[in-house]
Amino acid sequence: MDLKLKVWRQSGPDEAGGFVAYDAKEISPDMSFLEMLDVVNERILEEGGDPIAFDHDCREGICGSCGMMIDGVPHGPKSMTTVCQLHMRSFRDGDQLTLEPWRASSFPVLKDLYVDRTPFDRIIAAGGYISVRTGSADEANAEPIRKKDADAAFDAAACIGCGACVAACPNASAMLFTSAKVAHLAHLPQGQTERYTRVLDMVETHDTEGFGNCTNHGACQNACPKGISVDYIAQLNRDLFRATVTTAADPVGS
């Protein structure tokens, strides 16, 4: 099959960008979307051009490196699927596709479709962990955890940090990402000690990193390749409210 691509090209973070048209010819429906781009890039290289830059790594939908807007939808038309797992059989011969990077002030474009998502690391560093020194852990089976809590924690922890939620959000908010980590740890007994300081610190960093705020559109959930639910955002809100109006997050007792 043959497709036409309109791809955002931008040579550097401070350069102006624009759309450039490419033909993707003789594409097999069994190719993944990124393999299709590999083929296009191989051709660009043969013709002496600079290949389209995009981040990618594991190509099995778990590392969270890849991601781009395909016709205005993060990771393209197939739900619960990262762009590396999206296959060309989801498209038709002659389709015209627009490829754009994630757009958010906090995710500056480094080149073409490649953006910088390091603010996510800083949100985690603000409190997305349980403080336990190596070697200081209790015997693993000492504290039973209800299966449903462990499962719920896992569901939230399945986030791959790809940034599709930010890209999809009309406010460029990273609240789904932040809440997934807050909820993961809040579902576990080990996460209780720091539960309320964690939510305050993570939301504060989320804000200072320049992400927008959540206004409950739900676009993030629909864009998320791992199906992370906006219910976690509700939980984050509740925890933050509690942390603010009660003494739960106060550093010292009175």
Binding site: A137, A140, G191
Partner: peptide, 22 residues
């Protein structure tokens, strides 16, 4: 042995039985 203890303490959501044990 220590790895499992460490991971559980960090909040790694390992699969559990209905009784709550790993």
């Amino acid at each position: 042995l220590n790895i499992i203890d460490q991971a559980v303490a960090q909040g790694v959501p390992f699969a559990r039985e209905y009784g709550g044990k790993l």
